[in-house]
Every structure is written in structure tokens, then in C-alpha cells.
Design a protein around this nucleic acid. Structure first.
Lengths: 252, 252
DNA sequence: CGTTGCGGCTGACGCTGCGGCAGCCAATAC
DNA sequence: GTATTGGCTGCCGCAGCGTCAGCCGCAACG
């Protein structure tokens, strides 16, 4: 049977000799014979297998998955469909991430600040779940989980509307703060009341003092939130949190 | 000044202690003080820096890029815009790749075969360029480069039309082959003449014998082409190549 | 006073798919 | 005799940590 040395196979297939050695090392493509000081020689069936490998690799399959497919442990079509699903998911993730990046750029350039519905965008599902679980354990189920599910269930036009309302409230607060008003100032507390009503509208029940103050803690202690709020103005998150705590203590 | 130990910072920021140590190791985030057996303590400014780091990381920036940004060596907006461009490119790549995967699935399930314009889809630009360069060196500039540029410059409706014409020719050849006709059979050679005219139509000049035989070599020796053609029927690529070589020898 | 436990530390390996380099061997060409 | 191919075997590097393993210091508990 005709056999070919490494370099020739590499040239024919358009891959490097290093790659062929690697495939040998991981057992993906074993030469037909290996003798005479380790010289590899590949036969026709190895070339065919290499074609299959490169075809599947071109589609983005992992090498171990390719091995499974070629060993018959895995159905090609099944594997490719799973792969396609993964690709679709990755695409969606990238789309969300790109949107978040664009929003950040606009914000840095002086546009409207980043909005709540982008807070969790672009995280992969595992990270996202971990963040939510972690947030839950820190501030209790009530605060984060409800806010989260509420955000998820809103219709798109509602989701787009909410940030603007928060922005408006933030702007009013920032104006008062610039004017030197303390967090427990009456004017500030009036705005906080609006903030509470806004939050309550998207809660599935009226938040109690604990839950509302938990939200305040969220603003300052979770860097993802704190950062967003502090980009309104430096220290704004702490200011808002202080105002909320005072309002909750006096009104709830 | 108040300082916090590793674990506490980790909890506040929602990252692992290991991550903080890693950031220290690569010089991205150095603790305010490190004493008493290597104990790390972070101050307020380190926390702020960590917030910045996590914000940028969430947007998908690489850690060394983040370092550059935070050191002021790189403009945030500039970096983010470059990143956004990269994301867009990656998305396009994934889209093309997904299309190729879908086409492959349909083909494996018995649909129409993969078409020439998907051959190079989903490769990253560097790989693609390398493949083309490599193909050029093997079969000469004329064959691959022209075919490639021609494919690139076609209008979409033309690109969609070409594969069908090739498919039709392949089907005619396959019929003859099934009937036992040799590659140099007159009937086969007539079909090859049509094939030549089809190829010539998309070439920027009439291919000579060498170029046309180079194309035949491409069909059998480049796994990307060979695989596609052999999925018409086993050994079809070799059959077609043989027929082409004979026709070229007698007609060009 | 010993032990357990917690919280911290420092390596070092693992993952993915090779690229690239150093160092060595064998056959061939000059 | 020697310079050139062409092949081989390690091993490092890449991104960003997760995950041990192994050790230290300080506290509480029996």
C-alpha cells in the first residue's frame, strides 16, 4: 500500500506537520506505520480520516468531539445540531454584549447613562446564574430575584420605558445634591417617594422597609450597580442609598 | 485608612479570592499593603480600581487591555470602540459559520450538496488568507486566485445560480458514470466541454490546458474540494479530474 | 495543652490547539 | 567531510483563572 510521510500529507491537506504530530499525540489520527526512528507514514485510509477531521474542524467542532464522531460514538448529525445550537447561543450572547458595549461608549461620550436592563447583558448563563445566586444569598431572595424576574417578564416597550423614568428621578436627585441638599432633606425625600412608587410598580408586592433598604445596599455594595450609579456622578450611589434608608425608616 | 482582607473584598466585589490573587500576580491590582506573611489588604482606591476592572471585564476586554486603560496608556473610548469592532467581526464570522454548519446538516440529511460559495465560509481572515496563499503556491496563481476573486465579485444572485449549474453538470456526469462510461468516453467528454465553458465563463480569460488541469488537481488533492465532490458519489472527484485531464489534453 | 478549624498564603497543574524553538539523528548532496 | 534537508522528541507559551496540595498563624474548644 502506498504511504506518505508527514510533510507530504501536511502539504496535501493544507495543515502543518506540527498539527499532524499533535493529532498523533492525542490519538486523533494515528499513522499507518511508525518505524525507523519514529518516522510516521500515512496510508489512504488515514488521509480519508484526515479529510473528515478537517471538514468537521472547519465547522468549529472540538477535536475530542470529532474523535467521538469518527469513532462512531457520536452521531454526526446529532453532534452538528448541538454545535449549531451552541453557535446560535454564542451569537445571541455576542449581540447582547455588543449592545452593552455600544451603550457604554455612548454613555462615556456623554449620552444617556447605562440602563438597568443592560446590567446583566452579555454574561454567559452560568455566570449570570451565579451572579444572581450570589446576589440572592447576600441580600435575600426578595430583593434581587423579584427585581430580576420582573425585568425579565416585561414587554420590550416597557423595558425601554423604565430606564428613562429612573433616569428622570436620578436627574432630579442629582440637581438637589448639586444644590447642597442633604439626603434627608425634604425635597430629596419627596423624590425618593417617587422612586419608591416606581420601584413598587415593578415589584409584585409593596416592598417593606427591609426590602427597600436592601435595594439601597444593592446600589452601593454591588459593583455592577454601584458603578452604574456612580457614573451619574461620583458618590451618587451612596447619596441615593442614604436617602432611601432615611425614607424607609420614616415612611415604611 | 480602612483596609479589607482578600476574602472580604472578594465577597464585596463578587469575585473569587483566587481571582484577586491572580490580579496581584499579573500586576493588574496590587494590594495597598502586603505584610505579615503575605497577607493582602486592599484600601478604598484599590476597591475603586477593582470596580473599573470588573466593569471593563464585563464588556469583554482582555485583562492586559484593561491594565493599559487604567494606566492611562489607552483611551477608554478608543479601546471600547476597537473592541466593539472586534465583536462585530466575530459575530459575522459566527453567522457565516452557522450558515455553513446548517448547510452541512441539510446535506447530511439528504438535501442539496454544499455549494462552492460556502467552501471558505467561517474561516477567520488569517486562516483564509493562509489557505489561499497555500493553494496558490501549490497550483499556481492562475487557478485559485482567479476562481477566488471571481467568486468574491459576483453579485449574490449570480453566486446562488452558479452552484446549480455545477450541480447539473455533476448530475449528468454521475449518470454516465453509473452507466459504466469511462472518463474518456465521448459522452463524458461532451459534458466536460460544458463544464469547461461554465468555468471559462467565470474566469477572466480562457483557461489554458495547464490551468484547467490544475483545477482538476484541486478537485482531488485539496481535501476541502475533494470532500465536497466525493459527497456526490464516492470517487467522483477522481473521475471528474480524469475526465478533465483527458479533455484538456485533446482539446486545449 | 493538644486539636480542630478558619483564613490566608504559595506553587503547580489543567484546560484548547497547536506555534515555535532547542537539540538530536539519518540520509543525501556537494 | 560537511552542509542541507527532513524527521523526530520534548517543553514553553497563550488567557484566565479553577482546583488541588501543602503549609502557617491565630483563635476557640475540650
Amino acid at each position: 500500500m502506498r504511504t506518505w510521510p508527514t510533510a507530504e500529507v501536511a502539504r496535501m491537506a493544507g495543515v502543518s506537520a506540527r498539527t499532524l504530530r499533535h493529532y498523533d499525540a492525542i490519538g486523533l489520527l494515528t499513522p499507518a506505520e511508525t518505524g525507523h526512528g519514529g518516522l510516521r507514514r500515512y496510508g489512504r485510509s488515514e488521509l480519508l480520516r484526515l479529510q473528515q477531521i478537517l471538514l468537521l474542524k472547519r465547522l468549529g467542532l472540538r477535536l475530542d468531539t470529532i474523535a467521538d464522531v469518527l469513532e462512531g460514538d457520536l452521531d454526526r448529525i446529532e453532534a452538528l445540531k448541538r454545535h449549531a445550537a451552541g453557535l446560535a447561543e454564542e451569537r445571541r450572547r455576542l449581540e447582547r454584549l455588543a449592545a452593552t458595549v455600544d451603550a457604554t461608549i455612548r454613555q462615556l461620550e456623554g449620552g444617556p447613562p447605562m440602563t438597568p436592563e443592560t446590567w446583566f447583558d452579555g454574561l454567559d448563563p452560568a455566570t449570570e446564574a451565579a451572579h444572581r445566586a450570589e446576589a440572592r444569598s447576600r441580600w435575600g431572595q426578595a430583593v434581587v430575584e423579584r427585581a430580576w424576574t420582573v425585568l425579565q417578564e416585561l414587554r420590550p416597550e416597557e423595558r425601554r420605558a423604565i430606564p428613562a423614568e429612573f433616569d428622570a428621578i436620578n436627574a432630579r436627585l442629582q440637581t438637589l445634591r448639586d444644590a447642597g441638599a442633604a439626603p434627608d432633606d425634604d425635597a430629596v425625600q419627596t423624590v425618593v417617594a417617587d422612586h419608591y412608587r416606581l420601584v413598587a410598580r415593578h415589584w409584585d408586592s409593596q416592598p417593606g422597609a427591609e426590602a427597600y433598604k436592601g435595594l439601597a445596599a444593592l446600589y452601593t455594595e454591588d459593583p455592577r450597580f454601584a458603578d452604574t450609579y456612580d457614573q451619574v456622578a461620583d458618590g451618587f450611589a451612596a447619596y441615593l442609598a442614604e436617602a432611601i434608608r432615611h425614607w424607609a425608616d420614616t415612611h415604611l
